[in-house]
Design a protein around this nucleic acid. Structure first.
Lengths: 208, 208
DNA sequence: CCGATCGTTGAATCGTGATTCAATGCCGAT
DNA sequence: ATCGGCATTGAATCACGATTCAACGATCGG
């Protein structure tokens, strides 16, 4: 056998997905053409079709994996907090999500808002709905416990997804331009406060 | 001269823009190809290039006009309310924006979130920033008057743009599926409450 | 060493829309 | 009636990326 594992342990399909993931992280889905992906994977363009149905197949898989990892991290962070404290769960969700987004380079942008084609838009819907579902559950519970005022939990959830996403990836956000590493905490705190107020959480930890 | 005004008063460029606007309203920018636009305008494809530099030129102009009209309507509604009452201004903004979006068919979706190419994405940035600017001013004023708690006005503004946009156009929103004409008011009310809470407005009109 | 097999290559082809431009039609002026 | 010039046509061309596939070459059993 030749080199390290060029065609060995990993498997061509995995190499394609890894290469595509790297490109998406660096530059978004728009840069993940057949040529770019196969070049990064160190193979010829045609070989993609031996190991995947199409470039959209590969990119959809990349989206599922990245989005799934983000969602899982957030879900885990939320579940680490007692369900009884809806406010703390909400804070955990926002902090985890925002922290990962701010440190993940272009990935959050690619997953949340980058214009992409049909194949991936459907994945995106699942992704956003995943967050909205978690949020809706938290809001529902908070209402039951009397922590949050009566409201349409699903609409609030959608609104929070939009608010967090826009604050983190929109044209006015730190991610759009350069931003100070040190600012990250301040930004996360501001988003958290915004969302806590939005659901009507009573206890809001103020900082001087 | 021949027909009504086929090549008369209106001007070819205007006809192109009108045709493109109609298509965007009906089906979004994705449907506004050269062929579709020129066909709707009743002229041949090639003529587009006599009266516009490119299809992107035409679509960017359509975007500017539609977005400008929406923004102007919202701005007008906001200015109709005394600046001293930041809460009322915020309500006016949301109600005007949401009402127009819910009644405007696909237009709101096209302007806010439809995936489009570069030429138009820059226009979109201006559009969203326009709303964010108005919102930031309202939030700023509300803080000065002690109606809203201390917060990062620009971040709140971005968050509100995201929340309103997602609630109205997101996968979880009424616009994604069919929705009852009668529900529109309830939706608008829910979004309003959400945003009022988000900025920390004290007086929130409850309804039983 | 020979041929079968299978992974691999990358140039040719396809698909989809935008864009160009030679040809045509239409008009008033002469 | 003929001419010059402007408006218009729409088929040909271009652009650009995805996709295909005939050809190549490494490996292995005999």
């Amino acid at each position: 056998m030749g080199g390290t594992d060029a065609a060995g342990a990993t498997g061509r399909r995995q190499e394609l997905i890894d290469a595509a993931t790297g490109i998406v992280r660096d530059a978004g889905f728009g840069a993940a053409s057949v040529k770019a992906v196969t070049a990064r994977a160190g193979m010829s363009a045609g070989l993609l079709y031996t190991y995947a149905g199409s470039i959209d197949d590969v990119l959809a898989e990349v989206f599922r994996r990245c989005a799934g990892a983000e969602l899982a991290a957030v879900d885990q962070a939320v579940l680490a907090v007692p369900a009884a404290d809806a406010t703390a769960r909400l804070v955990a969700l926002i902090e985890t999500f925002a922290d990962r987004a701010l440190r993940g380079g272009r990935l959050a942008w690619a997953l949340l808002v980058e214009p992409v084609g049909r194949a991936i838009d459907e994945e995106r819907l699942t992704y956003r709905r995943g967050y909205a579902d978690i949020l809706a559950e938290i809001v529902e519970r908070g209402m039951q416990d009397g922590r949050f005022p009566r409201q349409d939990a699903r609409l609030t959830a959608a609104g929070l997804v939009g608010a967090i996403g826009e604050a983190l990836t929109g044209p006015l956000s730190p991610l759009a331009s350069e931003y100070d590493e040190a600012d990250a905490d301040a930004i996360i705190r501001a988003i958290t406060q915004l969302c806590l107020r939005a659901v009507g959480a009573e206890r809001i930890e103020e900082e001087p």
